[in-house]
């Protein structure tokens, strides 16, 4: 257990892009005296303070909670979504994972449905549209019966929560060679498919959500499972298998047909 605080000198190779229509380029920056106790985003804060002091525009990156739950942060760090640690978001990654003198390549999530807004910040509203297409239970406020009317086996509830734990960060898309959003989409399908509340709409839900996912321009799943390894919430590819089952069942054994909205 190391408690010692060391300082790192690093070269950051950062993707800079002024706006969606800019072509973008890599720029190298040096940051010195980075404490190993800093989080990765705190290290970027230091870089930005340095840039502002020099009168340059700071590097734009999305972040909010900085404790791994909101899903706002996320960049590719040396070719890995959210960096080298498993089940860790960029904001939870600490600099003790790096060595002095290292060059760190920092890139935004790249996928056509996630256009770059600026530098490392991308637009992930495609995810919202996927949820909008069916990731809900149609129950109005006030219509609910008593919470204990529907017993749910504990294993089902736990497994459903495993899927519902998705933070919507987009690392799965970023890490997938096909820029596929299957892990994200399956997490919601699987969450609701395992609960009785989700049952009445299960066929229409999966059919719609898959159609919307495709409409957004994400690639297909070729089962390389890089998404699972990159997922900070530990969402398993078993949920993708469940989506596949649900989708096949819905397509062949129900009357559901897809309804999509264009972007």
């Amino acid at each position: 257990m190391s408690h010692s605080d060391q300082n790192l000198n690093l070269t950051l190779r950062v993707w800079r892009q002024d706006g969606p229509s800019d072509r973008g380029r890599f720029v190298d920056y040096k940051v010195n005296g980075i404490s190993t106790h800093m989080s990765f985003l705190e290290m970027l804060d230091v870089l930005n303070e340095q840039l502002v002091a020099a009168g340059e525009e700071p590097v734009a990156f999305d972040h909010d909670c900085r404790e791994g739950i909101c899903g706002t942060c996320g960049v590719m760090i040396n070719g890995q979504a959210h960096g080298p640690d498993n089940e860790t978001t960029t904001c939870q990654l600490h600099m003790r994972r790096f060595k002095s003198g290292q060059t760190i390549v920092i890139e935004p999530w790249r996928a056509n449905p996630f256009p770059v807004i600026k530098d490392l910040a991308v637009d992930r509203t495609a995810f919202d549209r996927i949820i909008e297409s069916g990731g809900f239970v149609s129950v109005n406020t006030g219509q609910a019966q008593d919470g204990n009317c529907l017993p749910i086996p504990r294993q089902d509830q736990e497994s459903s929560l495993d899927a519902a734990a998705c933070i919507g960060c987009g690392a799965c898309v970023a890490a997938c060679k096909n820029a596929s959003a299957m892990l994200f989409t399956s997490a919601k399908v699987s969450h609701l498919a395992q609960l009785p509340q989700g049952d009445p709409e299960r066929s229409q839900r999966v059919v719609n959500m898959v159609a919307q996912m495709d409409e957004e321009g994400f690639g297909g799943c070729s089962n390389t499972y890089e998404c699972e390894a990159a997922c900070p919430a530990g969402v398993s590819v078993e949920h993708i298998a469940r989506l596949n089952r649900e989708y096949i069942k819905a397509s062949f054994c129900s009357t559901a047909v897809p309804a999509t909205k264009s972007k």
Binding site: N86, A111, K177, A179, E226
Partner: peptide, 12 residues
Amino acid sequence: ARKTGYRKTESK
């Protein structure tokens, strides 16, 4: 589905 590729990719 990914027009601009990555400079670097590494498996996790």
